[in-house]
């Protein structure tokens, strides 16, 4: 739509203004970098990739789908407040887009969380982690605004009405620019390490075993994946009135045995190898067959967080 510049030394003041009318969520560094509700813009960390992804603010860890009050079923009324997320990397933004594909039409709770939400990106010039591999995954432009870091200033690309509204609200921070954002601006250095993105014919390759042997099935990979959206549903009966029940959804993971357990105690993916491959095939094959795009965004968090550092990118690259 339009391009602007923002002086770097004005960024904190801009975010402070935004915080006056919206909740601001951004990467904050303590012992780790996590997305959280910002209390002071000075806490925001843009120099590292966030260890935990942003997804918990949209696809909630624990939420009530419906309640039964003893007489009738009640659907919770979800009134999303005005929220701005700042500091999303290209991978984080694409991950939201991929979750949208799977959930936004069919899932009321997810759709509600996506309302009144402005997404402001911070573009990487260089891969922030040694495990990044977004370069070969054909990520798209998906944001309301994107900040490109150019030393003393940011070039800000505004892509939507939502983004324009921020410019209109705080014009004192934005200067119109003639710069046209090009492919060169969007190039992220050192992020091209996944050489093979078509794994459809490699399912029976013996090299998967290299990962399986080291896999603890601890589900760190799926917990930290910004795209994974597997869940379980259970009924929570009130101890105070056993006629009252909340039907609750919680995050789950395909890496856990219990995830594919059904009535009669049958477990569909009892075998660690099947579970291990299922995640990677969902990310790089099954999702693509259904939605025409890879689910994986190449952020590398599943490797950074894996206790045994299983690097499936290396495994795939090495397959002959």
């Amino acid at each position: 739509m339009a391009t602007y510049t923002v002086r770097k030394l004005d960024l904190r003041s801009l975010l402070q203004k935004i915080m006056q009318s919206s909740e601001l969520i951004a990467p904050v560094k303590t012992d780790l970098v996590r997305f959280q509700v910002v209390e002071d813009p000075h806490d925001i960390c843009l120099t590292e990739q966030s260890f935990y992804p942003v997804k918990e603010f949209i696809f909630r860890k624990h939420e009530v789908l419906v309640s039964f009050n003893g007489k009738k079923v009640i659907t919770p009324v979800l009134e999303p407040k005005e929220r701005v997320i700042f500091g999303l990397r290209r991978c984080d933004l694409n991950a939201i887009m991929h979750q949208d594909k799977a959930l936004i039409e069919v899932d009321v709770n997810y759709r509600a969380q996506r309302q009144n939400l402005t997404l402001i990106g911070y573009h990487c010039n260089e891969a922030p982690s040694q495990y990044c591999f977004c370069g070969t995954l054909e990520l798209k432009d998906f944001y309301d605004m994107m900040f490109f870091d150019r030393g003393d200033e940011f070039i800000v690309d505004v892509a939507t009405e939502n983004g324009s509204r921020i410019i209109g609200k705080y014009p004192e921070f934005f200067r119109k620019s003639n710069h046209k954002v090009t492919e060169a601006d969007k190039k992220i250095k050192n992020a091209d390490r996944l050489f093979k993105t078509d794994i459809s014919k490699l399912y029976d390759h013996p090299d998967w075993q290299k990962g399986v042997d080291k896999c603890l099935s601890c589900a760190a990979c799926t917990s930290l994946c910004p795209t994974c959206y597997c869940f379980e549903i259970k009924d929570e009966v009130s101890i105070h009135d056993t006629k009252k029940v909340d039907r609750v959804r919680e995050w789950s993971s395909c890496q856990l045995k219990g995830f594919s357990r059904v009535a009669g105690n049958h477990v569909f993916r009892d075998n660690r190898k099947e579970r291990f491959k299922h995640r990677i095939y969902h990310q790089l094959d099954y999702f693509k067959k259904r939605y025409g795009i890879n689910m994986c965004v190449g952020c590398g968090r599943c490797i950074t967080a894996c206790p045994t550092r299983i690097d499936f990118v290396d495994i795939i690259n090495g397959m002959k």
Binding site: L216, S217, C218, A219, A220, S223, L224, S253, L256, K257, G258, A305, P307
Partner: peptide, 9 residues
């Protein structure tokens, strides 16, 4: 039945 890591993460 899942490991502590699930809740910890």
């Amino acid at each position: 039945s899942s490991p502590v890591c699930v809740e910890c993460r």
